[in-house]
Amino acid sequence: MSAVNDPQIWTLIGVFAAVMLGGMTLMTTLINRAMAAGFAAVDAKFEAVYVKLDHLDRDVSALMRREFGMPDS
Results as ranks from 00 to 15, higher is better:
residue 67 E to D: 14
residue 12 L to S: 06
residue 61 S to E: 15
residue 19 V to A: 06
residue 56 L to W: 12
residue 62 A to E: 14
residue 20 M to A: 14
residue 13 I to E: 06
residue 49 V to W: 03
residue 6 D to R: 04
residue 48 A to Q: 13
residue 42 V to A: 08
residue 10 W to S: 11
residue 43 D to N: 14
residue 30 L to C: 02
residue 5 N to I: 04
residue 66 R to I: 05
residue 1 M to W: 04
residue 6 D to W: 00
residue 17 A to Y: 13
residue 16 F to K: 00
residue 40 A to P: 05
residue 45 K to E: 15
residue 34 A to D: 15
residue 73 S to Q: 02
residue 63 L to Q: 13
residue 71 P to R: 09
residue 16 F to N: 04
residue 60 V to R: 11
residue 6 D to T: 07
residue 58 R to E: 13
residue 21 L to M: 12
residue 51 V to W: 07
residue 16 F to R: 02
residue 62 A to K: 15
residue 47 E to D: 15
residue 66 R to F: 15
residue 16 F to G: 02
residue 10 W to T: 04
residue 22 G to N: 08
residue 11 T to C: 04
residue 27 M to S: 11
residue 19 V to R: 07
residue 26 L to P: 00
residue 25 T to K: 03
residue 35 M to Y: 14
residue 65 R to E: 09
residue 53 L to T: 06
residue 1 M to A: 09
residue 54 D to I: 05
residue 61 S to C: 04
residue 6 D to F: 01
residue 43 D to S: 12
residue 63 L to Y: 08
residue 66 R to Y: 14
residue 58 R to C: 05
residue 10 W to Y: 03
residue 28 T to N: 08
residue 73 S to D: 09
residue 22 G to R: 01
residue 21 L to D: 05
residue 54 D to Q: 09
residue 48 A to P: 00
residue 20 M to G: 01
